[in-house]
Design a protein around this nucleic acid. Structure first.
Lengths: 253, 253
DNA sequence: TCGTGTTCCGTACGATGTACCGTACAGAGT
DNA sequence: ACTCTGTACGGTACATCGTACGGAACACGA
């Protein structure tokens, strides 16, 4: 129920592992790349809860402990998974910068791509990255996402801050989205079904007059969104506000 | 390493548990309230990883399985922990609304209080709340945080969206903060120490000229923040941008 | 041919959440 | 006062996890 740790071991070893070629095979053909891909397959198909070293080994037809010859531990494996997923984001470092609509269009593109990323890899949202993974693809991602902010009147620090703000927004919203979907899958109930199931019990116990604003707004939002929250709407609304705020910062110069 | 689940059982039972009095004691004096407090004590002192049903029972001098008489499972226990933590946020429903500085001052207050909440209860950030906990204190929190947005020119739905945006920002930033602190605690290295430990390995393997913008901006941000990221700065910067964006939305009317 | 180092992996340990089921007690009914 | 019954308590057991340990099997340079 809580977050699993990440990045506990030797930094130098982790860095070397992330930036290595991943193709050196032993006598059973076992490769770091193969291990990572198997892990991605499991996490993608059955979620992070289903990901265990035993399952990975099983999928590769290999003893469980053989994995530890190539990978220090599960922590480092997930780091590799994350960086691999990042690699699917942009096929070109200048993809965001060459988007129409200036820096704003570029940032909308960045947000959309990250949103898609979490949609395709919801397990990423369950990993508590104790430290940002500095792999090759993560570095490329950072470069690609910073470039459109170059030369528009922001200081270096502001460029970093703006990007962080946007990415935090997307990630947080995607986390809500993934949570909703997971419950839907666990309980077999849709968002509205679950709400209807708890409504009678709630009404019996909660005095709505104590929460006048909350009940009115909650009701309105619930009806508009077909459920308590609509992550897709939250993404767009939030991004629009954020970009307006950034535009105001730039205009102030 | 991944997020633990939440809210898997019967909705009605969960609601009743959350809104109940928590004082009915059996013959050994065991209470839902006592269980929740013990759990909060463990999570607060040693983190969520240290929280187990056995540890809670041990702390209460009680058999492990006795807990299950009062609480359906660990999932519901964490739900109760969360709602209890929410109870410490505002001592008055009108605390945010009666803050100086209008709606903007109120939202800054709300953000600061939530920031403090996660600072005091970092374990909350590790729980994957599969569904927002609708307990009494969560409801009060929602009401208190919505009130300052009343009557300033936003629709009901926009009120909800604005609040969600702010809370998502605070939570996401707090998550980064908690992650950094946890690594610091796990590895015994400070932010800068860890970075210095991986720097030589990174330089050996990463060609900085491939990431011109990233390395320049990263360097600048790293120096300004005494580490790769400065969550406190990210909080303030992001909140300022967001509130500017909201102000622009209101002004547009 | 013989070290010698690397890769593979079977076994085992200490955790975890909780299902199951027996036991023991508190309070109601007589 | 005595029995009956429902609830609270908790011991044991199971499946699962990450991984430490150490032996076996192989590749390869000398």
């Amino acid at each position: 129920m809580d977050g699993k740790k990440s990045s506990g071991g030797d930094p130098a070893r982790s860095v070397a592992l992330l930036w290595g070629s991943h193709t050196k095979a032993g006598r059973s053909g076992l490769t770091v790349r193969a291990i990572v891909e198997a892990a991605l397959g499991i996490a993608g198909a059955e979620g992070l809860d289903a990901l265990s070293m035993r399952r990975v080994a099983e999928r590769l037809g290999v003893g469980t402990m053989s994995l530890y010859t190539h990978v220090p531990g599960k922590t480092e494996l997930t780091d590799l998974m994350i960086d691999t997923a990042y690699g699917q984001l942009y096929d070109d470092v200048d993809a965001p910068a060459s988007q129409p609509g200036g820096w704003r269009g570029a940032m909308e593109f960045v947000a959309a791509r990250n949103w898609d990323l979490y949609l395709r890899h919801p397990w990423m949202l369950q990993i508590v990255t104790a430290r940002p993974v500095v792999g090759p693809n993560a570095s490329l991602k950072y470069e690609a996402e910073l470039r459109p902010l170059e030369g528009i009147g922001l200081s270096d620090i502001e460029m970093d801050s703006v990007l962080t703000l946007i990415l935090t927004h997307v990630e947080g919203t995607a986390r809500v989205r993934a949570s909703l979907e997971q419950v839907q899958q666990n309980t077999g109930m849709s968002e509205t079904e679950w709400w209807l199931a708890s409504a009678p019990a709630l009404e019996k116990v909660m005095d709505a007059s104590r929460f006048p604003v909350a009940s009115r707004v909650g009701q309105a939002a619930g009806q508009a969104h077909n459920g308590a929250t609509d992550p897709a709407h939250a993404l767009d609304f939030g991004l629009a506000r954020i970009l307006d705020g950034v535009a105001a910062l730039i205009a102030r110069r």
